[in-house]
């Protein structure tokens, strides 16, 4: 019987439990191997390997994470429109099924590799390693990894990226950072997307969203953006894409002029 809630185990499970008890009864008094190993060790090592590939090819790698439907692919399309003529962009797409997102990116003339994870809820470093060898990194300055839409699992898996960018659309609610602290704590930049809809979302407060992110001891910049109205800043309406593009340019510059102590 389950010790958590008292429910009966399914038949197969009962067998395992019985076998486990029996074997434990048969063996000698135990001795213990003291260890202090991260359970993410294998993933962290593969991520470091990926990071070395990216550094060698001088590629800035951004891991985009959000709930499904927060506008990751739309942001990428608008970003390619804005920067594609100056910056060589590549994209790795993660979804459970379909090539749809990679097809949208390729339609913009940018190389894209689609990873279909089947039932897996996140990308891991091994999947990224497989994908990066399908791209010519020497022809890429800026690589976006569009993670599986999920605010839970992707946060725990280092992929070898330079920065995590987490999207939160204004239609989702400003308390998402408090509901999903692991994800928002991992963010190096938070984009409040679909900001052109903000006037219609009177229960979403940019200040509250920011405050909830700060309460995760995270000082990451928080910017409202709109992929649908990328140039609206000049019209004095919503923030457009300018804060995001400025941030990206800053990261690209930093990469071009690395600090002296960088190996």
């Amino acid at each position: 019987m389950c010790t958590e809630c008292g429910c009966p185990f399914p038949p197969g499970m009962v067998k395992i439990t019985t076998a486990a008890q029996k074997a434990v009864n048969l063996v000698a008094p135990p001795h213990t191997l003291e260890l202090h190993t991260s359970l993410m060790r294998a993933n962290v090592e593969t991520a470091a390997h990926n990071r070395a590939h990216f550094a060698w090819a001088d590629v800035l790698v951004i891991n985009l994470m959000s709930a499904p439907g927060s506008g990751k692919t739309s942001l990428l399309e608008a970003t390619i429109e804005a920067l594609g003529n100056r910056v060589r962009i590549g994209v790795i797409e993660g979804d459970l099924e379909t090539e749809n997102d990679a097809a949208r990116i390729r339609a913009k003339g940018v190389p894209a590799v689609q990873i279909t994870t089947g039932q897996a809820c996140h990308l891991d470093a091994t999947m990224i390693h497989g994908a990066l060898h399908q791209l010519d990194l020497s022809q890429i300055d800026l690589l976006f990894i569009e993670n599986v839409g999920n605010l839970v699992c992707p946060a725990g898996f280092d992929l070898g990226q330079d920065a995590n960018v987490v999207l939160l659309s204004v239609t989702e609610g400003d308390d998402k950072p408090s509901k999903y602290p692991v994800m928002f704590r991992a963010a190096d930049l938070v984009l409040l997307t679909k900001a052109d809809l903000a006037p219609h979302m009177d229960d979403f407060s940019l200040d509250r969203a920011t405050s909830n992110i700060r309460r995760l001891a995270n000082d990451a910049p928080v910017h409202a953006v709109s992929a649908r109205r990328p140039n609206s800043l000049t019209q004095g309406l919503t923030p457009g894409l300018t804060p995001w593009l400025d941030w990206l340019e800053g990261e690209l510059d930093r990469r071009s002029f690395p600090m002296e102590d960088t190996p």
Binding site: N25, L26, A28, P29, H31, T32, L33, E34, L39, M40
Partner: peptide, 21 residues
């Protein structure tokens, strides 16, 4: 998220005491 220890028993070792499960 770390592995602290692994406890082993040798199947050829001395018989266990009652109630050590």
């Amino acid at each position: 998220l770390s592995l602290r220890s692994v406890t082993l028993s040798d199947p050829d070792g001395p018989a266990p005491k009652e109630g050590t499960c």
